[in-house]
Design a protein around this nucleic acid. Structure first.
Length: 274
DNA sequence: GCGCTTGTTAAAGT
DNA sequence: AACTTTAACAAGCG
């Protein structure tokens, strides 16, 4: 589930569990998950401690006492689990950090889209990978200037990590719903009022999601995310959640920019009504 | 068993 | 050339 709020939750979890404990070893099930050679990774980390964490978009950087960083990307399904050596190993724990105190940190990778590697310079890494300002840090002006020169649809533009970092497919739908903007509007066609609304919605959705530690079932009832199938379990009557939580009209579901998109055609009209 | 999936990116298209 | 769109990646899940 790793969009920005999940990664922020993982960052806090890592910070609360894994700092200041010397590493003994690292076990890797599939070296495709590594962006640094296994031997290099182990040689660099053995005996080292993690000392600090920072997050940009969906990227987690963990600083070591050697001055370099370990970069985590959680792909579509990555997760973390910290547990004692005699506890059962979680499923899909494909990379395991062994601490000298007997605890372990599992990097859980069900679909192998996750990545770990060494990074010397976070700024240089972000530049090289063209990762833009974090979605919680970007200013309305910065966002507006970038959107103004984009010819693509607003939804795929917001998903582009080189425009703003941290927004994924479910959050972009929520943000556009809260800002009442149709996902197929051209990014450059947004008025300054709409850009302002968009920026406010990004803040609101992300801060809400972080507050609930990305547990979507706890989100306010007027969030469109409850229409997503996976969120239905706490709600026996599935049908009612395919209606707009604001106007109760039927939601529209279609592919936009190649991704499944939920929106309310009434509350998010394509044509401006003012 | 089929189609779907929260992300990224190389390749193709304009 | 530069920007945009699409397909592919891997594997689990319903």
């Amino acid at each position: 589930m790793p969009e920005l709020p999940e990664v922020e939750t993982y960052r806090r979890y890592f910070e609360a569990t894994c700092l200041f404990q010397p590493l003994a070893d690292i076990q890797v099930e599939d070296t495709k998950l590594l962006t640094t050679d296994y031997d290099v990774l182990v040689a660099a980390l053995r005996g080292r401690q993690f000392v600090a964490t920072q997050r940009v978009g969906k990227n987690l950087f963990v600083e070591t006492d050697g001055g370099f960083f370990v970069h985590f990307h959680f792909g579509m399904t990555g997760d973390l689990a910290y547990y004692q050596y005699d506890q059962e190993q979680p499923r899909f724990a494909r990379i395991i950090f062994y601490f000298q105190n007997g605890y372990r940190l599992a990097f859980i990778c069900p679909r192998k889209f996750e990545r770990i590697g060494l990074v010397d310079d976070v700024k240089a890494y972000l530049l090289k990978k063209r990762i833009a300002a974090d979605a919680l840090a970007i200013t309305p002006e910065e966002l507006g200037q970038t959107l103004a020169r984009k010819k693509a649809l607003i939804k795929p533009v917001l998903l582009d990590q080189s425009v703003v970092a941290g927004i994924g497919n479910w959050i972009v739908d929520e943000v556009l719903f809260q800002a009442r903007i149709h996902p197929e509007r051209l990014a450059s066609s947004l008025t300054s009022l709409e850009v302002q609304a968009l920026h406010e919605a990004i803040q609101k959705v992300l801060l809400t999601a972080i507050q609930y530690e990305a547990n979507y079932a706890l989100f306010p009832q007027d969030f469109i995310i409850h229409a997503r199938e996976w969120a239905l379990s706490p709600y026996p009557d599935q049908g009612q959640h395919l209606l707009c939580p604001r106007c109760q009209q039927k939601l529209q579901i279609k592919q936009v920019g190649g991704r499944t998109t939920y929106f309310c055609p009434v509350d998010q009209p394509y044509v401006l009504s003012f």
